[in-house]
Each structure stands twice: as C-alpha cells, then as structure tokens.
Write a protein that binds this DNA or RNA. Structure first.
Length: 473
RNA sequence: GGCUCGGUGGCAGAGUGGUUAUGCAGAGGACUGCAAAUCCUUGUAUGCCGGUUCGAUUCCGACCCGGGCCUCCA
C-alpha cells in the first residue's frame, strides 16, 4: 500500500519511504503536565493514533515516542514569565512533582477513554536531564552557544544557516529584525538551552550542570529524548502546527549540528479543533476536557468519531450540535453492526470481497490519513447488500483496528444489554399490556408502557410479541 | 507588518474540469393501534469579480471575509 503524508518541510504530499523496511519511528510532542488536557489537545493525540494504526495495518513495526513534559519551562524564551509547573503547583497547593504525577495520570486516563494506543515510550523530561546536558555540551563544543551571565546558556541561531526552513522563513528575513534584546540575546530567534536558577530562591525543580544549578530550556528535551530512543535519524516528527515556527525549528537547529542532516525525514503538523470563539485555549481556564464530555453523557468514542469526520490538516469546528450529530451517527452504525452480529449465523467470510473493501479503506487512510473518506466507505459497506454479514463483520473488526472506533465492541455491549432478562414485576406489567392491547384498550397499554419506561425498560413490539429491553444507562 | 490555512446546503464535512460525497437534522412514505428500531424516497450549497476553457465548485488573478502562527499553546 502506498503511504503518503504531507511533509511540512517540503510543503508537499510525499510518498513515505521508511529508513528501515517495515519499520517506522516517530516522535510526537506530548503534554506539559501542569493542567488537564482539553479536547482540542486530544485531537492531536487522536491524529497520532490514527497515523500509528495506519502504519500497523500496513504491516509496519511502529516505535512511537511521546514525551511527557514535567519540567517547568518558563512561559517564554526570555527570562520573564512564570514556570508553568510551579504555577500549577501554587494553584493546587501541591508540589511540582505531585502536579506532574497527577496530570500525567489524568492524561493517561483521557487517552485511554479515547482508545488511543499507548506510545511505545512515554519518557519524562526529568528522567533525561543528563542526556540534555550532554547535548548542550556538544553544541557548546561545536560553537553554537553563548552564555548570558546570570541568565543562561543560549543557542546562537545565526550560526545555523538553515534556521527557519521549516517555517518557510530564511535567516536574512529573520535577521532583518535583528536587535539586541534586553536580556542580552544576540538574535531575536536565539533560545535558552540551560537556564540558571535564580540566586535569591530555590526552584522546585533544578539540577546541577557544568554551567551551574538550573534547569533545561524548553526545546532540548525533545531533541535529547527522540535521539536517545529513536536513534540519531528517524522517520517522522509530528505536532501541532503552532510548533512549526519556534519549537520544531529550534529542535532542528539543535539537533542537526549534533547528528547531521537530515535528522527527521517527515514533519507532520496538525490543525486545530476550533470552538465557536476560535482556537481552544488553555489560558482562560475555560475549556472542555474528555471528562467534561463524559459527565455530560457523551461517549468519548462519539467524540473520536467526530474528529475522524474531518481531516487532520484542516481546522475542525467543535460544537455540541456537531457532537450530537456525531453521536447519532456513531450510535446508528453500532446498531447496524449489532444487527450484523445477530444475523450472521453460519455464513462464511468471502475473502475476495473482504480484500476488496479492506484494501479500499486502508488505501484511503494511507493517503495522508483521509479518515472522512474512510467513514463514507463504512456507510457504503453497510448498505451494500452484495456483501454478507459475516464479511461485513470481519471488515468492521479491521476498521476497528484501523480507526479505533470500537464498533464491534460497542455493538456486542449493546446486544448484551438487550439480552438482560427483565425482572418479574416488569414482565408482569408487560403481560398486562398484552391483555390491554388484545382488548384494544390503547390508553391502558400506553399507560403501562410509561410505567415500564420509568422503571428503566423499553417495550418494543415485534412480530414475535413484545420485547423488553433494558434502557441504556 | 511577515508567514500560513480557509470560505461548500440548517449543522459537520469530502471529493471533483462536465450527473456536487457522506453523516446528522428536516420532509414524505413503508412497517406499527401508537411508539422505538429499520427500510425507501426527497428538498436545500460551492464568498464576490474577472480570466483560461466547449464547459469551473474544481485551474489562474484581483477583491471581500474569517481562522491561525510569528511569546507559552495540540
């Protein structure tokens, strides 16, 4: 199957060629664990999950690294702003380490409820301080660094000719605005590799280094951990589009002098989930989490379904209206899959038909993750009466592996609920209703139905008589 | 200001140089005493103006509008 991905570096759709046959290594920027991740953040993790599943279904051995940023970087490259970890700690009256643990746990809970496959490695930045220091030492030896006394060790972007290539800017454009910053940076694009701890107070997280006690700059962890776990040259680096101009450009600037060029073959960037007021933002503190959706009675899988209706490289508008629509669509598919399970009987899977649909769907998702089109195929598949139930069901098992929407799982659960026997008193009521119906006493029959309904059961009249079905929670 | 991505029916959102997916919602019908589920049918859209073309929603240009990045941010 041909795999194609949009590479930010070339700004083109490119055919994917792995460094090692049937292996792919990719790195995705993970969360900074100082607060809950909102549903906009989740979009990117779902995107990475689809990317991974697509490779797996294409027979690749996937090595996926996602960092957990648990070290408090400053809120800018300057020596201003607050440390986010310490800010979170102050907000909740806990230590920075406790905050990191707490939000790492809630993050894992959220990605689990979205059926996201756990990354092969989820390294914590604080576990890789020696590696980060090692890299800074190398950059220092190569002449890319300078010190701002009392501030930190900085990377001199003017020494790196390709700086800004990822963001489509060249150095001269950037240097056009060259000025000496208040804190002594040589170029506006220069960034901290190592920050010194303030002399007047002790930081919650700080480490010894050849340059003095302090903490790493906010780009170096990704370079250190990706190289350590994926090797000096790997296939794919993904992230949100806001990282293109700063974080990823700086990662490249740090890494390529150390490992040579190219460092990463494909750069993939995700677009935003938008709310009515624009980009979802954590800054206001007013944002939705997966837990919020669950509390409002939504199925996280319906949210995942909503995300897959769009394309990762396109902004997607989130609204509860859209989520309701996705929920209805998702449930409707589950109902149909449940019907496949009950109607399949002893049918045999038609391998030729299976292959045809399997290839069509995998091909589509392999083409730059066109999940929306794959979902169209699902609708067509359900409607196609030339495909028997057993074959359809096997295809849904494949679709579940590829898209992670748990159709078969949910369908089986639905059937399990429907097969729960009603308690005696409900059965009795149902019998009374049958009598009322026989006497054409519709008023009474409807009254009894309401009674059964408020007890948590539905009466459905079928040609074999009434069925009593437990209502979904 | 620089860079960038868009503007498709009520909502979400695809593809395509020539009959404009799909889902949800809506309408009508079948089934049902009524419901639910299911099935069938169905209406409604390509920001504006030029250009290329036999033909453009699709390609090109201008314009209008909107989102985003350029501090931290998926």
């Amino acid at each position: 199957m041909t795999i194609r991905l949009y590479n930010t570096m070339s700004r083109k759709l490119e055919e994917f060629k792995p460094l090692l046959p049937n292996h792919v290594g990719f790195y995705s920027c993970g969360p900074t664990v100082y607060w809950d991740q909102h549903i906009g953040n989740m979009r990117s993790f779902v995107n990475s999950d689809i990317l991974k599943r697509m490779f797996i279904e294409n027979g690749y051995d996937v090595k996926h690294v996602m960092n957990i940023t648990d070290v408090g970087h400053l809120t800018s490259d300057e020596d201003s702003g607050e440390d986010k970890m310490e800010k979170g700690a102050a907000r909740e009256n806990k230590s920075a380490w406790d905050i990191a643990k707490m939000y790492t746990d809630s993050f894992i809970r959220d990605i689990t409820s979205l059926n996201i496959i756990k990354p092969t490695f989820m390294p914590h930045a604080t576990d890789y301080i020696p590696e980060q220091i090692e890299q800074i030492k190398k950059l220092e030896k190569l002449g890319y660094t300078y010190e701002i006394p009392g501030d930190g060790i900085y990377y001199d972007t003017s020494k790196f000719a390709d700086y800004g290539a990822l963001g489509g800017q060249n150095l001269s454009e950037l240097r056009g605005g060259l000025r000496v910053d208040d804190n002594g940076k040589k170029n506006p694009t220069d960034f901290a590799l190592w920050k010194f701890s303030p002399t007047d107070k002790k930081r919650a997280m700080e480490w010894e280094s050849p340059w003095g006690v302090g903490f790493p700059g906010w780009h170096i962890e990704c370079s250190a951990m990706s190289m350590k776990l994926l090797g000096p040259h790997f296939d794919i680096h993904v992230g949100g589009q806001e990282h293109i101009k700063v974080h990823h450009s700086d990662e490249i600037a740090q890494s390529e002098p150390i490992v040579g060029k190219p460092w990463v073959n494909y750069w993939v960037h995700y677009e935003w989930l938008l709310s009515k007021d624009g980009k979802m933002s954590k800054s206001s503190g007013d944002f939705l989490t997966v837990q919020d959706l669950i509390e409002r009675g939504y199925d996280p899988m319906a949210f995942r379904y909503l995300l897959l209706l769009g394309h990762y490289h396109q902004p997607l508008d989130f609204s509860f209206e859209a989520l309701d629509a996705a929920t209805n669509g998702y449930k409707s598919i589950i109902r149909k899959v449940a019907d496949l399970i009950t109607s399949k009987g002893s049918e045999h899977v038609n391998d030729a038909v299976y292959d045809e649909w399997h290839n069509k769907i995998l091909d589509t998702v392999s083409d730059n993750l066109k999940t929306a089109e794959a979902l169209v195929y699902i609708q067509e598949l359900l409607k196609d009466n030339k495909v028997n139930a057993a074959t359809k069901l096997k295809l849904f098992e494949f679709i579940d592996r590829l898209l992670g929407l748990q159709f078969v799982n949910r369908a089986q659960k639905l059937l399990d609920i429907e097969s729960v026997e009603a308690p005696e008193e409900i059965k009795k009521l149902a019998e009374e209703r049958v009598k009322a119906k026989a006497e054409k006493n519709w008023e009474l029959a409807d009254k009894i139905r309401l009674e059964i309904d408020s007890a948590g059961w539905n009466v459905v009249d079928t040609k074999d008589g009434p069925k009593i079905i437990k209502k979904m929670a």
